[in-house]
């Protein structure tokens, strides 16, 4: 039995008495922030308040040096050459990490931001592909995020490929998916095998639960020495000082770009 299967505590407070419990959003933000520490330039795209918080938190934790750019509005937005600049910047190799969500994400890391059904006959339309078909190719560390970990989102095969997870040899592709953060677990992606590998399960959840709620097959964590079939680690709880930072400095900062999100996630306790 894996560690995750024996884990008993739900995502829950490791904070001092009186401190409110960690919310699912805060937990995911802290997981994402760990993946970003030490990077030079993290850029955040449209409709991405959770990645925005993670990027700002990682910058705060690593001290000076890291850059964060958020394209909506003027706060934390260094771009002065119009809407095209973030893409030009990625094409130049000046963005180290970026985030993409997906109404659907499949086992080969293809993502669908466009809609359900057989294109162009769309049964359920989502906003559209945004810049994914370019950023997925150009940014070295793309982190996929799916707060809702379900078979609805994590599917065997996406209905529409907004952006492909891998490309055949010969296609110029310095970038691609490196990790997937969900409400239940953290996975890594191995482009050579076109497969996700489970890295850790969030506290209170089990490997069985992950399997039940994932529409694709994935590999288990490597054991000691790098072999297959290792134990499944539990994702660490947010560190108390990071949670404190998130609820004060970062909450105020992200409110400049995403006021509704900040009010919903951070303000009830203010």
């Amino acid at each position: 039995m894996s560690k995750a299967e024996t884990a008993s505590s739900k995502i829950s407070p490791k904070t001092s008495p009186g401190e409110p419990a960690t919310t699912p959003e805060e937990f995911i933000i802290c997981v994402m922030a760990r993946l970003l520490e030490g990077l030079g330039h993290v850029s955040v795209g449209a409709l991405s308040p959770i990645p925005g918080c993670a990027a700002l938190l990682a910058r705060e934790v690593s001290g000076a040096g890291g850059r964060v750019s958020i394209i909506h509005g003027d706060a934390n937005n260094p771009y002065t050459d119009g809407g095209r600049e973030i893409f030009d910047c990625a094409g130049q190799g000046r963005i180290d990490a970026f985030f993409l969500g997906g109404a659907q994400i499949d086992g080969e890391a293809n993502i669908n931001l466009l809609g359900l059904g057989s294109y162009p006959k769309i049964d359920k339309r989502f906003p559209g592909s945004f810049g994914s078909a370019f950023m997925y190719f150009t940014v070295p560390k793309v982190i996929l995020f799916a707060p809702e970990h379900s078979r609805r989102v994590l599917v065997e095969r996406v209905d529409f490929i907004s952006a492909p997870g891998t490309s055949p040899p010969g296609v110029r592709r310095p970038g691609g998916p490196k990790a997937l953060v969900t409400g239940l677990c953290l996975m890594s992606f191995e482009a050579g095998k076109k497969r996700f590998r489970l890295q850790s399960v969030h506290p209170g959840h089990t490997l069985e639960e992950i399997r039940d709620n994932t529409g694709f097959d994935f590999d288990l964590p490597r054991g000691e020495g790098g072999g297959e079939g290792g134990a499944v680690p539990v994702t660490p709880e947010p560190e108390a000082e990071k949670l404190q930072m998130l609820r004060s400095t970062i909450a105020a900062e992200i409110a400049k770009t995403y006021p509704d999100f900040a009010a919903r996630v951070f303000q009830p306790r203010a």
């Binding site: 449209a46 909506h72 931001l113 162009p120 989502f126 906003p127 945004f130």
Partner: peptide, 21 residues
């Protein structure tokens, strides 16, 4: 590339128009 009302959610007339062809 996308149509959305941002934090206010999906753009309702756009979604219905596309779904209805």
């Amino acid at each position: 590339a996308a149509v959305s009302l941002g934090e206010a959610g999906p753009a309702p007339r756009f979604s219905e128009a596309v779904e209805g062809g």
